[in-house]
Design a protein around this nucleic acid. Structure first.
Lengths: 156, 156
DNA sequence: GTAATTTATATCGCACGCGACATAAAACAG
DNA sequence: CTGTTTTATGTCGCGTGCGATATAAATTAC
């Protein structure tokens, strides 16, 4: 009977990890919202811009790989960023199938305005009851979690 | 200069916690998909049903509180579950504003079919390079994370 | 008791997120 | 070189997720 209880507990534990992940993800994005609103962008748009701020002039598939998202999600995001005048999309001369995404001057300027965001978010977390060690361990586990689950999508 | 570096590192750490959360959430939901497809339901629909499997005959706001979602998200989910014949929505006799959500026989029967899901997901995680301690610590941190951020939404 | 306010739920619009499918260019097979 | 396959990107449809707003019932103010 006791062995069964332990198994049940482990089952509960692993089952319940999924909902906290789902809830935490939405809640943290909600923390970003007031700062992103000031820039007039959404969180996925911010993610795409962060990729470009680190490496400008990359293909769509480079961005989908970094964000672990499909083309059918990233393409509309990039089109909206283009409509806002933050990026430009041009076919690659090397491979006409590929599309090169480049920041405009306006897109590069937004990086400076966005610099306050990680500062502000870090402040919000240090206000809370989280030690540096706990956040470090959390990030480390999440990174391994993502690395493990990532490859199970398109063949691994 | 070194003090500044430490600050920069902390900033990076806390900034980068958000993306792993976002990615992990989507990737874990993707792991659920094949099992939920067999039941013909989505992950948010599964969450709503889990609330009802634990406590049947509750109000819409009870479900929104449990799932930390707004009415404008939960109502369409419940209407789809109603269209599938899994739940029934009836105005509360006590308070005509409230809507009581009850499982149908079909909705209760689905619980047994869904029992394999946590088993299967637990299997997938134990296959991976995650110790019981790590998963336990991850869940613990996420729960505190959610509890901390939850109250900052509608007044705390 | 009537008016103003709060509360529970729902509607609307927009932006994802993704499965299924389409299209066009590159690579490959013969 | 021509036909097939693969690859990169895009379109379409559906189901969230949420801000803004609507509606109706309960509560409160007076």
């Amino acid at each position: 009977m006791q062995g069964s209880d332990v198994a049940t507990e482990e089952l509960k534990l692993r089952n319940q990890i999924c909902f906290p992940l789902y809830a935490a993800s939405r809640l943290v994005i909600r923390e970003y919202k007031p700062y992103l609103d000031k820039l007039g962008i959404t969180y996925p748009q911010y993610l795409a811009l962060m990729v470009l701020w680190e490496t400008d002039g990359v293909t769509v598939s480079f961005i989908t790989d970094k964000l672990i998202l499909n083309t059918n999600t990233v393409t509309p995001v990039l089109k909206r960023l283009e409509q806002m005048g933050l990026v430009e999309r041009t076919p690659s001369p090397d491979d006409e199938r590929s599309v090169i995404v480049m920041l405009t001057r306006k897109g590069r300027e937004l990086e400076r305005k966005a610099a306050e965001i990680p500062l502000a978010l870090a402040g919000r977390l240090t206000e809370g009851p989280f030690s540096h060690e706990e956040l470090s361990a959390l990030k480390s586990s999440l990174d391994r979690f993502v690395a493990y689950l990532k490859c199970r999508g398109s063949g691994g």
